[in-house]
């Protein structure tokens, strides 16, 4: 009796396996990270592959709705012995943030008045914003700054207070750095999560930041995360661009075109 049961279960299993048509091109998987050779059941995607996809999408969705870990960041960033400002954009909720990009680019009133106490001039303002994935900055911002801030201090660059911004978009850095009277801004922000990269952080660099700038005035270093551009090379690239920008007094498209070191 027991044998029959086991036999039946094995039989069911084999039957199940055999209805998944193997993909003849498994050998091509080595050439691309694309989801090729996933087989089929009928004309559909086999369950295992579909659930892998669904899990990746869940990670991306959760990243969009993740929140900046203010407590954790305040705690880790205090080693730099800089004042830390906690700011908020005009987008009062994630829903507003997603539907009104203009709100995410403006500081709210209270934050604007906070800046007034810190408007002594500085070389660089570092701004950490949640963007489309707070997870990305929660996991990558400190690790990057741990390498980057000592480099700046060695280069005798004066830093503004560190800013943490909730519901912020890239351009909010212009208003903040302008308010802090900084010559240069670095916005570390969570990028739109991809299916395999919910933790990807971007660094947007702007020389002479001021309200009203658009993307062509900035340089972007993308995909900063352990499985992408790792923290050390990211910090090196940022330092290189900061030095070049100060030398040529410009950032954005023109700087990028001349920067042979950037890969």
């Amino acid at each position: 009796m027991k044998f029959v049961l086991i036999f039946n279960r094995v039989y069911q299993f084999v039957k199940f396996v055999s209805i998944i048509k193997p993909d003849p091109l498994v050998s091509l998987k080595e050439f691309t990270a694309a989801r090729i050779a996933i087989g089929r059941v009928g004309t559909s995607i086999p369950l295992k592959e579909f659930q892998e996809f669904k899990l990746a999408h869940a990670h991306a969705r959760d990243a969009v709705y993740s929140v900046l870990d203010i407590g954790g960041l305040l705690n880790s960033l205090k080693v730099f012995k800089l004042p830390i400002l906690h700011l908020h954009s005009n987008a009062i909720s994630r829903h507003k943030y997603l539907t009104r990009p203009d709100f995410g680019r403006q500081l709210d009133e209270e934050s604007t008045s906070q800046l007034k106490d810190y408007s002594t001039s500085a070389d660089i303002a570092i701004i950490i914003a949640d963007g489309l994935s707070a997870t990305a900055v929660n996991e990558n911002a400190f690790n990057l700054l741990e390498l980057l801030i000592p480099m700046f201090l060695d280069a005798k660059l004066k830093l503004s207070p560190l800013c943490l911004v909730e519901q912020g978009r890239v351009a909010i850095g212009d208003d903040i750095a302008y308010g802090l009277n900084a010559k240069f801004s670095i916005v570390l922000i969570g990028e739109r999560p991809g299916l395999s990269s919910a933790d990807s952080m971007g660094a947007y660099l702007t020389y002479n930041p001021r309200p009203g700038l658009t993307d062509e005035s900035r340089n972007c270093i993308s995909n900063i995360r352990p499985q992408g551009l790792t923290h050390k090379p990211a910090a090196d690239k940022i330092l290189y661009l900061v030095n070049e920008a100060f030398k040529r007094k410009v950032s954005g498209v023109t700087l990028k075109d001349n920067a042979g070191l950037l890969g």
């Binding site: 990270a33 694309a34 090729i36 739109r192 299916l195 990269s197």
Partner: peptide, 12 residues
């Protein structure tokens, strides 16, 4: 697109 996932444009 392989498995709905465009790995260059990052959308489905």
């Amino acid at each position: 697109i392989p498995g709905s996932d465009d790995i260059m444009l990052n959308y489905q």
